[in-house]
Nucleic acid binder design. Structure first.
Lengths: 144, 144
DNA sequence: TGAATATAATTGATATATCAATTATATATA
DNA sequence: TATATATAATTGATATATCAATTATATTCA
């Protein structure tokens, strides 16, 4: 007998991430009109590690390279990033956050902190650790 | 200080669901060429509850109505479903699984069971309960 | 050196997600 | 009954996901 997808833990996991994305996007959109959650994460990552290549960013964010290419195109169009050739390795690009991008980064910092704090209200550090361990067990099972 | 997205639990949750989807899709594709994981779930749901409307299926699967409309179009095109007008309420459709669809359902049942079992190997029922409770706490925080 | 191989990024095709607007039909209520 | 409101589904626009194929450049090694 196959149980209804709704009864599985994978459904709950998916629901959690969807709710989180919706919530986070809503709060970001209140203060920055034209940026998506994923684009915001690209900005935050690049801000903390400016030398990353697109491939590395993709790995960090668990995104496909193709997706990242397109996200970055949009971010350049919207003026959040500039993209220049990296002369040390001409296959790569040197991504830089523009002024508009830095403004967004500063606005995003508190939003992200509040989003996470609100999401995890009433959940202890120990519980988060447990959650993380269980999820990593699953990830481990899946990636072999 | 903003921590890197990689260090947050939300990243881990997202990673888990992506790995699961990739794994499940791979195993489905081995045996059924032209069906996606999401389409497979629609089939399974409809098989267990044949009277559902598109809206109800969308809610079950935590999908957007617009997405579901498009998924169903594709499934009809591929011959997994038929769609007829529901004479009791002409806004609705009566979805029916075709022979090809039923064949897929039968193939999918064991695949889905094995996928879930493999994913959760080494994790006890109690732990799954804990996982589920923690995720529901988060969902609860997010949906107000 | 030159050919083979590896790597970074892009492109194309198709599927899904999300939001807002719209269409068609049902239901409620003045 | 006529009008307002609610509901089911669709459509359009834009973003992202995934896979396979391709391009451009680097690296390796015979």
């Amino acid at each position: 007998m196959i149980s209804n997808p709704v009864q599985t833990i994978f459904y709950t996991i998916e629901q959690t991430i969807k709710e989180y994305r919706k919530y986070a996007q809503k709060n970001i959109s209140k203060q920055i009109e034209d940026i998506t959650l994923d684009q915001a994460l690209v900005l935050m990552i690049l801000n903390s590690e400016p030398e990353l290549t697109q491939k590395e960013i993709a790995n960090f964010l668990y995104k496909d390279y193709a997706s990242l290419t397109r996200m970055i195109e949009l971010m350049v169009e919207k003026g959040y990033l500039t993209r220049a050739i990296n002369h040390k390795d001409r296959r790569r690009f040197k991504l830089e956050i523009t002024k508009k991008g830095m403004l967004a980064v500063e606005k995003l910092k508190p939003i992200i902190l509040v989003n996470r704090a609100n999401s995890l209200k009433g959940i202890s550090q120990d519980e988060i650790k447990i959650l993380s361990n269980l999820l990593n067990k699953i990830i481990n099972n899946l990636s072999k």
